[in-house]
């Protein structure tokens, strides 16, 4: 009897020790982590960084397998995850093409086909000019555009009918009918280099794409497309920190735009399964590595999960629809 009781006790203890998994769901196979963008871009960098953090801190028993599915401005990746509903072993990182790709190309896809997991951050946009440019403020630059010939000023950007071009069109509201010549390039890094080489007059690069050139004194930030200034006060160059860049609104250019960096899982998965990924991402965001990464890229570290996240995405979809309708970018 005694021995039996003892054994039972051991068994119970052992069960306790192994099993937070008792209640919660855990992946039983490697998890595919889709990136609806090419290698080297902002989304790719972030996804591979998350993969690195998960592996470094052993946050998950199974492996993450990072796969780029960039075809058709990300449509390939979205259709892939839409095509495997209820598969708990597939997640996707999203950027604005979650909205812009279906709207611009007519790809049969909507974010409602997926399960929202978490917003990791909002990526900022900054209006950049070459450091040798005579324009010191956003106001200066836009008046120059206003005063110049139509299409005289060239805006470099990533992709077509996506975030960079949407911001450009929004800026054109303030230039008295004068348009930019928008030149699409393949990647954000290449865009920044084109600006350093003076092949274009300005860009709206994400901070992380242009920070190295800014540090080296080749680029000048004019304004940040956010409601508030950045909270990062450490000096990036000898004189300026991210927080020293004025918001566009401050400089009299009333344009705001931020890009979602979030995680979605396949549609129709159970709450337990979704919770696992919410927990995983929360753990990732608590690491010091993540904080360094956020600061390097001057991200707006807004974190949302569950219902709030869903509401945010709904609102963002509406905004994109309106912006793209105004710019005549909708698929016909």
């Amino acid at each position: 009897m005694r021995i039996k009781n003892f054994l039972l006790g051991v068994a119970a203890l052992a069960a306790l020790a192994v099993s937070p998994a008792y209640a919660a769901w855990e992946p039983t196979r490697p998890v595919t982590f889709l990136i609806p963008a090419g290698t080297g871009g902002g989304a790719d960098q972030m996804a591979r960084f998350i993969d690195g953090v998960v592996k470094k801190h052993n946050l998950m028993k199974q492996n993450l397998i990072v796969v780029n599915k960039a075809g058709g401005a990300g449509a390939e990746g979205f259709l892939d995850i839409k095509g495997s509903p209820k598969d708990p072993h597939k997640i996707i990182i999203t950027l604005s093409n979650l909205f812009t790709t279906p709207l611009a190309t007519g790809t049969p896809f909507n974010w409602k086909d997926l399960t929202p997991v978490a917003m990791l951050a909002l990526d900022q946009f900054v209006l950049w000019v070459n450091a040798e440019s005579p324009h010191k403020t956003a106001q200066d630059y836009l008046s120059a555009v206003k005063g110049g010939a139509d299409r005289q000023f060239k805006m470099g950007g990533t992709g077509s009918k996506q975030e960079d071009q949407i911001i450009t069109v929004a800026l054109e509201r303030l230039t008295g009918g004068k348009k930019f010549t928008y030149v699409p390039f393949a990647g954000g890094g290449a865009v920044a280099v084109q600006l350093v080489g003076k092949h274009v007059d300005s860009t709206v690069n994400n901070p992380i794409e242009a920070v190295a050139q800014w540090k080296a004194g080749a680029l000048r930030p004019l304004c940040l497309f956010d409601a508030k200034r950045s909270t990062y006060t450490d000096k990036v160059t000898s004189t300026m920190a991210w927080s020293d860049i004025p918001t566009c609104k401050e400089s009299g250019v009333n344009v705001e735009y931020q890009m979602l960096r979030g995680i979605f899982a396949a549609g129709g998965i159970t709450k337990d399964q979704a919770d696992f990924y919410v927990n995983l991402m929360t753990k990732v965001m608590q690491t010091p590595d993540w904080r360094t990464f956020m600061e390097q890229g001057a991200f707006n570290p807004t974190v949302l999960t569950g219902n709030e996240y869903r509401k945010w995405v709904e609102a963002a979809e509406k905004t994109h629809f309106d912006l793209m309708k105004e710019a005549d970018f909708l698929h016909k």
Partner: peptide, 17 residues
């Protein structure tokens, strides 16, 4: 591109400097 990502994780910023 993946190497570049590596630089970031090691805390190095690729660029002119």
């Amino acid at each position: 591109a993946v190497l570049l990502g590596g630089l970031l994780i090691w805390g190095l910023q690729p660029g002119p400097l």
